[in-house]
Design a protein around this nucleic acid. Sequence first.
DNA 1: CCTCGGACGTTATACGTAACACTGAGGAGT
DNA 2: ACTCCTCAGTGTTACGTATAACGTCCGAGG
Lengths: 369, 369
Amino acid sequence: MTSQDSPESAAASAPVAARAGVRAARAALSGRAAGTRPPTSRDVASAAGVSQATVSLVLGDKWRGRVSERTAGLVREAAQDLGYRPNLAARSLRLGRTRTALLVVPAMTSEFFAQVYAGAARVAAEHGFGVVLYPSPEGIGPARDPFDSARTALDGVIASSMAAEALASIRGSDLPLVMLDSDPAEAGPAAHVNLDIADGVRRLTEHLLGLGHRRFTHIAADVDSWTFVVRARALAAALAGTPDAELRTVRAELSVDGGRRAAETALGSPGPRPTALVCDDDFLAAGACKAAHRLGLHVPDDVSVTGFDGLNLATALEPELTTLTLPAEQVGARGMAALLAVLEGRPVESGDLPVALAVRGSTAAPRPA
Amino acid sequence: MTSQDSPESAAASAPVAARAGVRAARAALSGRAAGTRPPTSRDVASAAGVSQATVSLVLGDKWRGRVSERTAGLVREAAQDLGYRPNLAARSLRLGRTRTALLVVPAMTSEFFAQVYAGAARVAAEHGFGVVLYPSPEGIGPARDPFDSARTALDGVIASSMAAEALASIRGSDLPLVMLDSDPAEAGPAAHVNLDIADGVRRLTEHLLGLGHRRFTHIAADVDSWTFVVRARALAAALAGTPDAELRTVRAELSVDGGRRAAETALGSPGPRPTALVCDDDFLAAGACKAAHRLGLHVPDDVSVTGFDGLNLATALEPELTTLTLPAEQVGARGMAALLAVLEGRPVESGDLPVALAVRGSTAAPRPA
DNA sequence: CCTCGGACGTTATACGTAACACTGAGGAGT
DNA sequence: ACTCCTCAGTGTTACGTATAACGTCCGAGG
């Protein structure tokens, strides 16, 4: 290997020459089939008879006025022939950007957040971005923060306020951050995408008041999250205008069974029975329906039940749930759009997303006393 | 390379010197706060007073017998102080591997596949891998294959057989592939992770036969996918041993409403009514329950209904669904484990995953004629 | 005749990492 | 005294891309 090809390149460049020789040989052999190594921009260049820089220019669409139409065509053809795909790692290294965003949600197994992901991924794909998920917020094994190792591979973060513990370490990094459905007061410098939950709750409450309900119990998620705080506040505010309305609250673990237990408590308590159970999400509402059933009560005639989120579950139940349908896909899409805006230095478009009230079979006028 | 190396390299190397000078100045200024550029292994090296190569050795855990305990400690301390994180793009470029797997599923908004993802991500994280999702198989805008641009950033693929259209382009690449719940006959060279669905269906059928059911209708998913083919086959096979059992099939769009319509057809058909509706998934079963309700039939006394998958939905319904619970998380975990095995050249551990029969309130003995 | 812009490219880096090939010092063996 | 190890590291390279900084050729203008 201590080749003597040209007189003086001697010691230092010997390995270079050797390697280059090997590669040249391989490349010359068949152009592409050698070793099945994926083709690089240099391979395209030599196939097209131009320099690697020109390939980069043409395929990067920055060639107007710098490369002739004919040459550009040659390059594109060669790239096509070889099945050239740019190496993303090399590009990221060179540019210092990865075109990848991190989405942090409490649990992907929730249909709601799955849709948030879908929306974010859709918008991302339209702009050549990818979306990765924060791996298992539930925590795997020893609590090594997975964000830690991945942050060099990210351009920005979109985070739900419900993923509290993950947020701490993310705040520490100086990555652009977009918060979803979070307290505007503490979002700090981060952009945020919010829902007009207060308005939705007001309309839901008016629907129930209009049916004649006066005794409400809020089946409240036992989770310390902005979105649930807002729901509770809005419900209280919406009932405040009706003097004879009364509101109690029972906290529930966020699951079907948690909802069932809370509703059994609410419906079995001494004193006049509530006629409307306003639940913090559709699963809680499903549990509430089960509780009613167990106590021999009929939904909606004995007790009305409302949900929150508008998941598929809402229409799978019998009766179907009256619920507030949150535009989950839109939340994700707007979140990604906001992140892209931040990354490009554009102003973030603001305005809360509307929430839809879906009136279905689980609510009706209460039976007269 | 047409250089005249020694004396007059002046001109050529001038920019190098300038750049290096700038960097040296910046680095010297404050060690890390300059420009907020993330620290590199070279920064760690100079902070620890060693070479970059040593840093790589120590942090890569390949230093036994090559670096003294003391020096290693110094390096680790410096890395800690600077908050050093290896640049993943650079590492991938150097190693030609990305430690990233692609998961291809038909829809993330299905709870089942969300759990598959969770399992895959868990195992991946345990091995320092990441999992990305095939972006929107539903197809965004013009059908530019998203896999196309991303394949250089992947080490392997895990794919559900239900994501048919995406599979074509993936088969073309020579990435290691693991198929989930797919036809062993056509999996080809790919490894696969399968479920013992036939056994589950047999147990489910025996449960129904044991209750006295003889007239079955299969509410079959209107999807051309291996897993549904197996379900249909297994059901027919399990009933074959009981001469007086009869089986009809109604195809249904894979949704609650599809299930409702199919069940209305099944229950409203002329001739003796089926007493058991065996549905291809839990959403179809929910629809079947709604259909029964609309026709004034009681579940399970007038008609038994069974689901498939064991989603949260199954226990949210009233009555709760008797269903076959698929170990979705395990499927994802085994898929990732298989991919890791392939990547490391280890043999893939085989054996079908068991399926659990959950007997709940939606099945009972049929009312005597 | 000289020069001066385009048009059309090319050359030479740098990005941050991992790994190979070395080196120098201090013994051990013969 | 010589070689041969081992220890404890260092110097250098290449991975594939994007881009700043240069050429070169050519026709037109002075």
